[in-house]
Simulated assay, not measured.
Amino acid sequence: MILKTLFNPTSKTLLFSFLLLSVYLQSNAQEKKTAGNPVFQGWYADPEGTIFGKKYWIYPTFSAPYSKQVFFDAFSSPDLVNWTKHNRILDTASVKWAKRAMWAPSIIEKDKKYYLFFGANDIQSDKESGGIGVAVASKPEGPYEDYLGKPLVDKFHNGAQPIDQFVFKDKGEYYLIYGGWRHCNIAHLKKDFTGFIPFKDGNIFKEITPDNYVEGPFMFEKEGKYYFMWSEGGWTGPNYSVAYAIADSPFGPFKRIGKILQQNPEIATGAGHHSVIHDPKSKDWYIVYHRRPLGEKDGNSRVTCIDKMYFDEQGFISPVIITNEGVEKSSIK
């Protein structure tokens, strides 16, 4: 009966059409040259991009009401185009002191372990419980477990809310750069990430806040210069953006140069809270950021995107052109 149905004239046409569609879809998938923006589906923000081994990784905030931000997902790709989701690499079941608002993960590899720094609870004063924590795993995709059993930073120092953490390695030393509420601190991490090493003046938290800083710090070194980047504007508004400064030291002083990432009202709004990916063996630089699709009014309607980042002959960052196409395939060299 089945064979008779398949080979009647009408079924032949349907079967042939199905086969053509299948071949087309397979061919189209194989020929996919760019990821498109967003690079993966779902509401995700504050993405930190990095490289582990031969894969690109993105660790974002799950963009939802604070009470639902109780876990992190991660995404990996061999080529920037095809992404694999790793579900719930860390959640509040593993971090007893974290209750909500798990934000802006930052990750670093050390001694074959992966340390995930994150914010939780959105504390508004020193009387509340929460701040910046650390989780650890033996693989980039986890599962991660609470490393300290308590926050690493649980108070306001120099006016900086303990959120939006970034871990920066420089000349074998590790630093925590963080801060909301328009203040940014840098602190020298102990080798085991259990606390901090005081600076020569006895202080632990050194403020490095540049003009217009709001949140979302990120730093990288290029040709002996330190590029410090941050987000400006309100995260729920269309004018959320990224600016930067350059200094000879990770401690600054950082004098604001200008914006390099912002909305294009024909493509998306609220482009901000970014990170940078660079394979040292490649000339390509990528900026990973979130933005709000056109027509979306909900503050949590944020998606993760990647576009190319370029430098001019003087080493200044050129304004980023945000696109719908995204970046082309590129494997780790």
Rank of each mutant, 00 (worst) to 15 (best):
D279T: 07
I306C: 12
H157S: 02
I186L: 00
Q263W: 11
Y286S: 01
S331P: 11
T5Y: 15
Y286G: 11
F156E: 00
M1S: 14
K283W: 10
G234Q: 13
S67C: 06
P250E: 01
F16V: 14
D154H: 05
D122T: 03
K139A: 15
Y178A: 01
P238V: 08
P140T: 12
T61D: 14
K259C: 06
F166D: 13
Y174E: 05
I267L: 10
P198F: 01
N264C: 02
T92V: 06
E325T: 12
I163S: 10
S231H: 05
G36V: 08
Y147V: 01
H273V: 03
D122M: 13
E173P: 03
I306R: 10
S77R: 02
K333S: 15
V153N: 02
N87T: 09
F220C: 03
K150V: 00
Y144E: 06
E266W: 08
S94I: 11
F16Q: 12
Y24F: 15
W285G: 05
G315V: 00
P9M: 08
V303D: 01
Q26A: 15
Y289I: 07
P250V: 00
G270I: 07
E109R: 13
W235M: 04
K281R: 04
D307Y: 11
F220Q: 07
W57L: 09
M1P: 09
V70W: 10
T323P: 08
K113W: 06
V242Q: 09
L294F: 01
L294P: 01
K12C: 15
I321E: 15
P60A: 04
P140G: 10
I163M: 09
F196A: 03
E145G: 00
N264I: 09
K225V: 02
L261Y: 05
S241F: 04
S125C: 08
W57P: 11
P38G: 02
K127C: 11
G179C: 03
M1D: 15
Q161L: 12
A64I: 04
I267V: 13
L15S: 10
K113D: 03
A104Y: 04
P265Q: 09
D284A: 15
I277C: 13
P210F: 01
M219T: 01
I58D: 14
I322G: 02
K150T: 00
D164C: 07
Q263V: 08
W235N: 01
S94Y: 15
W83H: 12
Q314D: 15
Q165W: 07
Y289F: 06
K255G: 03
D170N: 12
C184K: 05
S301P: 05
D211Q: 13
S11G: 14
